[in-house]
């Protein structure tokens, strides 16, 4: 195991929590569709993607625990932290909404993950690069799934178009946060452990614009209030409710086994 300078260790722990929490929270949100999907096939697809995300979170939080070096497991980190200690985007904690909202959110997130993980698989921290390379295969499929659905919903019926456009308008305020540089990440960028977010923002914007245009959807207005602060533990009210449900079992029966 690598031994890091205290400054890097602290930053890396926080970054791994950030990446892990994004996937844990989004995976949990997506799992809420289980049994409620619009058709059986899509129900299974969403549950598969939810499981992939929770699996990715498990790897990241496990590594975070190792980097922290205080003996915390991925379960300790997932189930025994309060909302203020979570580092996930506002985007992923929003209630699941309708199917168009879920697909629009997945698409915006998948495009970001896809570009980020292409860089992360070349991280100078080998353990991190290895789990990124493994997840990239899943992410490539997730993006294909959400991309194909955006095309069909946007260019589908009048109702599906309207719902998807509304979803994008509601979600747009959470997109800027995906590219906000944090000063605490600078040491990681300097060590080539993580990429600079600005290095793929242009690609993300182009990918989103191209797909939305093909789907006859409009890219929402740029000049609007943008949510921020997730890396400092600022969240919407929705995260607390989500965590209460997700954590109740582990907190009621600590150490419970299947």
């Amino acid at each position: 195991m690598n031994s890091f300078e205290p400054e890097i260790q602290e930053a890396l722990f926080d970054y791994l929590l950030h990446l892990g929490d994004n996937r844990l929270v989004l995976g949990h949100r997506l799992s809420e569709w289980c049994g409620h999907g619009p058709v059986l096939e899509e129900d299974i697809a969403l549950a598969n993607i939810a499981l992939d995300l929770v699996g990715q979170a498990s790897h990241l939080l496990c590594l975070a625990g190792e980097v922290e070096g205080k003996g915390r497991s991925e379960d300790d980190l997932a189930y025994f932290r309060e909302a203020i200690a979570f580092r996930n985007f506002h985007l992923v904690e929003q209630p699941r909404g309708d199917f168009a909202f879920t697909i629009a959110r997945q698409f915006l997130f998948d495009a970001h993950s896809y570009l980020l993980y292409q860089k992360l698989q070349n991280s100078s921290y080998e353990a991190f690069a290895a789990i990124a390379a493994k997840a990239l295969k899943e992410i490539t499929y997730h993006l294909r799934h959400s991309h194909q659905w955006i095309l069909r919903l946007g260019d589908g019926t009048e109702e599906s178009h309207r719902r998807t456009q509304n979803a994008l308008e509601d979600l747009w305020t959470y997109t800027d946060e995906m590219f906000l540089s944090e000063s605490k990440d600078e040491v990681l960028v300097a060590q080539n452990i993580v990429p600079e977010l600005s290095s793929f923002r242009g690609e993300w914007e182009k990918m989103v614009r191209d797909v939305l245009t093909e789907a006859t959807l409009k890219v929402p207005e740029e000049n609007q209030y943008m949510a921020k602060g997730c890396r400092q533990g600022r969240h919407s009210e929705h995260l607390g409710h989500l965590l209460a449900e997700m954590q109740i079992l582990a907190r009621s029966f600590p150490g419970a086994q299947w």
Partner: peptide, 20 residues
């Protein structure tokens, strides 16, 4: 078999239902 609106979605659904 699977339900799907078109061939590409049929492939995706088949992937999720039968190969996961």
């Amino acid at each position: 078999n699977v339900h799907a609106p078109d061939a590409e979605m049929a492939l995706q659904n088949a992937r999720d239902v039968y190969t996961r």
